[in-house]
């Protein structure tokens, strides 16, 4: 009789949520999150399957390649648990359909998760925290830590429970407008703030003197390259440099190489006296 009631309870879901905070512990170049996904699923596998043979098959099923943005792995874990539940109840769900659902979801979710988490949430909370930290305020690191993690943990928990409830319905939800609306809105916020940061927090100064004139009152006025550029638009060099870096990164230049190249530019410019 007890075989028929196999819904995951809150405790088991919470266990899976805690486990999903270690999603990338065994990150490896062969199968990325494969073992991590299996680790997340263990409470569900224990609950739904009782024989060794069933359990072995289930474990092996979830040791396949998996990779997505860790903060948004919740929905996939949830919906996979729902499918395993249906399968253990005797529904005709084969290995292939479980795996293809996982593969089918991880791509689009990373497509939402990467810009949302790494492109918007972290740069904004980190920049905000850093702006306080530069003045030596402990509020800066605290703000970053608390705000980033609150959003991240909420995404993990609600993502997991939502995926488990929605089951296969998630595929329809993923195709809906809400998700693209959210991604697009986050993208706008992220890009806007990046624009602000480029001009506010990049320091380039070219103190090269172009002309020195003395007016009738005898006051000397010096015209520097930086002065002229600032009259055109403050932050113009920073913008140009950022766009150049974007171009070079697209041409597959490695970030660390570019950082060292800029170091070289800094040293050379300082030596020649054209950068200060």
């Amino acid at each position: 009789m007890s075989e028929t009631i196999k819904k995951l309870n809150k405790k088991e879901l919470f266990n899976m949520f805690v486990r999903s905070n270690f999603q990338q512990a065994s990150f490896n170049y062969e199968r990325i999150h494969a073992l991590g996904f299996c680790f997340d699923m263990i409470p569900a596998i224990k609950k739904f399957y009782k024989t060794d043979e069933e359990r072995r098959l289930a474990l092996k099923r979830h040791l396949a390649f998996f990779n997505t943005t860790p903060a948004v792995c919740g929905p996939v874990v949830g919906v996979t648990a729902a499918m395993e539940e249906a399968r253990s109840d005797g529904e005709a769900i084969n290995d292939g359909s479980i795996n293809s659902l996982k593969v089918g979801l991880m791509g689009p979710l990373a497509g939402v998760g990467d810009p949302l988490i790494w492109g918007t949430l972290r740069p904004i909370t980190a920049a905000l925290g850093a702006s306080f930290a530069l003045n030596g305020s402990i509020f800066g690191p605290l703000l970053f830590f608390v705000s980033f993690n609150l959003v991240r943990l909420a995404l993990k928990w609600y993502g997991l429970t939502y995926g488990y409830r929605a089951g296969m319905g998630i595929v329809k939800d993923m195709a809906s407008n809400t998700l693209t609306k959210l991604t697009e809105g986050a993208g706008i916020l992220g890009l806007f703030v990046m624009g602000v940061l480029v001009t506010k927090w990049t320091k380039i100064n070219v103190p090269v003197v172009i002309s020195q004139t003395t007016n009738q009152a005898g006051v000397k006025s010096t015209m520097t390259v930086q002065g002229i550029l600032d009259q055109l638009c403050p932050g113009l060099l920073a913008l140009g440099l950022t766009l150049l870096m974007m171009y070079l990164l697209k041409k597959k230049a490695s970030p660390i190489l570019l950082i060292f190249a800029l170091f070289g530019v800094g040293i050379l410019g300082y030596w020649l006296g054209i950068l200060k």
Binding site: D114, P115, W118, G119, P123, G187, G190, L191, M194, L197, V198, W201, T202, K203, I204, N205, L237, A238, L241, T242, L243, M245, M246, L248, L249, K250, P255, L258, I259, L262, F263, V265, G266, I267, G269, Y270, L275, K276
Partner: peptide, 18 residues
């Protein structure tokens, strides 16, 4: 001096990723 504008690489990485 370079410390003032090395940040551009980071901005570019985020912008490209978006």
């Amino acid at each position: 001096v370079a410390g003032g504008f090395i940040v551009a690489v980071g901005y570019a990485m985020v912008l490209n990723m978006m």
